[in-house]
Nucleic acid binder design. Structure first.
Lengths: 300, 300
DNA sequence: AATGATCCTTTAGTTTCCCTACATCGATCC
DNA sequence: GGATCGATGTAGGGAAACTAAAGGATCATT
């Protein structure tokens, strides 16, 4: 007893003849007849009987045909199950972000998508080296990653859209001698001790660029990833540091000065596997991320 | 997307690896892999993904696997649908009977099966020639038919069980000259005018037997099928008639006298197609018919 | 009563589909 | 870094379902 045989039985009940079923299912009457015989072989009581030259269902056949409707209904529901899953506007969407993006984007996402009926957010922080951002798309629907402008970009396996192109400024205590200048050159800052991230993290490459532009090696005094910690270290006189202009909450004891002559700008990208945007809920969150990026850029 | 593929997807969700599914379904992992690929071909979003060297369901795959459970449930219900139909004790059972059997058996059936939860009766009268009883089993679950003892019996296509072997007596007015005798011989009645059924109806053959035993032709004055009408005709002096001893309500103006020397006995049989007794409700009614036959015999 | 049309079934042959066997590739373990 | 485990691809064989053609039964028509 399989789905096709039940389908045939049901159609026979509704259409009333083998020939009509055959036409409806686009096969020969012979095929219908054979399938009915196979179905009957599995059932100890007659499902069909001759009525003149037509074949009709017995009471037992009608009982089984009724059950066949449930089977077809369930199959139809299964066929639409994926589409429903895909089209749900209120599905759960997981978003991972490195720390500073999280602190800037997460509040805007939470407020922008607080309305009921919208996507339910599952937020997570994930501060990893640049190479480890793409694999995160296995676990999260959307991954906020950063990379420096003019770097190779992301592997083909993930789709990336740029949310923000954010300048990196030089952070220093408000009473630092360089704080009086409006802009800084690589030469201005080459003598200073630096606080930078661990190797493999995106911002490090800019430090190298400054060294190249100034023609000398920089002194890397401290290696701190977390910008909030970096800010405290800078405020305490531990050295200069590159800090994002928009995504960090301004520290009262620090000033940010733009840097000339070096590409000091990072991209904040949303990474995801291509198929993830098949879900409406994911697309909604992605759109909200772009809106949030506009807000962040505008208030900078 | 068919039942087997959905089954495989569901098992993959529960067992967590292609190999485990293959072992559970008693096929090779290659077969599972191929079926999953076929299923995936019909769905625009990934249903599975690699996790290390295992294969697991994506969220979309889990959504579809959930729908697969409904499909399997419906199929299982379908597999039991016929059995449930067959085992229902309260199904409708149709019973057809010739007139005198109906008047004797129907009241006993209705009283014996009045309890709720038992079979629902659909009774019908059907007075047909002997040859037309078997075809009635197409339309009715049980058919009460009659035939004379020592006649060929019913065709192989129907199952027959004898309910009653009922003597046929000679009916006459209470003031008839023959009414003084305890028993009658063929010779006693051969001179009398007779009231008999139309040709083709069972009782007619006994009339022939009487004629043969007496060595002369009988005078068939009237041809009346319905025993109630026959009784009135006999009471009015229209002639003698053969009448069943038990299944007719006694007429106040008639007496019944047994006949010697001739097999004057009819069988009241329950006919049905063999498969009909697969239904519990039909078996219940058949048993009740036998019980009713005992009652009728006992009060005779 | 005969003829033709309709409907179902049977048989034989072909096509399609699914599975096994075997090889390969990638991931994990020691 | 070899060994093992798990999944997948390919080729081939066998089962299952279909088509085509013929035959039998029923019904309508003349």
């Amino acid at each position: 007893m399989d789905e096709r045989q039940l389908r045939i039985l049901r159609e026979l009940g509704e259409l009333g003849s083998v020939t009509a079923v055959a036409e409806a299912l686009l096969v020969t009457p012979s095929a219908i007849s054979q399938q009915l015989r196979l179905l009957q072989r599995a059932i100890p009581v007659p499902l069909t009987e001759r009525q003149g030259r037509r074949l009709v269902l017995t009471d037992a056949g009608q009982a089984l045909a009724g059950a066949a409707i449930e089977v077809e209904t369930a199959l139809e529901r299964a066929r639409h199950a994926v589409a429903e899953f895909v089209d749900r506007p209120d599905g759960e969407v997981s978003v991972a972000a490195f720390h500073s993006a999280g602190s800037a984007f997460f509040p805007l996402l939470l407020r922008g998508l607080a309305a009921p009926g919208g996507p339910r957010l599952a937020l997570a922080d994930a501060d990893v080296t640049q190479d480890d951002f793409p694999p995160l798309t296995r676990e999260y629907d959307l991954v906020l990653a950063h990379r420096l402008e003019h770097t190779p970009g992301w592997p083909r396996t993930v789709t990336a859209t740029t949310l923000l192109r954010e300048p990196l400024d030089v952070a220093m205590p408000v009473d630092h001698p360089l704080a009086v200048k409006r802009r800084l050159t690589p030469r201005d800052v080459a003598d200073q001790p630096w606080i930078t991230a661990h190797d493999g993290f995106p911002v490090v490459a800019t430090i190298d660029a400054i060294a190249t532009a100034a023609g000398r090696r920089l002194r890397l005094a401290h290696r701190i990833n977390e910008f909030a910690v970096v800010a405290e270290a800078v405020a305490a006189g531990g050295g200069l540091a590159l800090m994002p202009r928009w995504t960090m909450r301004p520290h009262p004891a620090l000033v940010l000065k733009p840097l000339s002559g070096v590409q000091a700008r990072r991209h904040i990208d949303a990474l995801h596997r291509p198929e993830r945007t098949a879900r409406k809920a994911v697309r909604t969150v992605l759109a909200e991320l772009h809106r949030a990026a506009g807000t962040i850029r505008g208030r900078g």
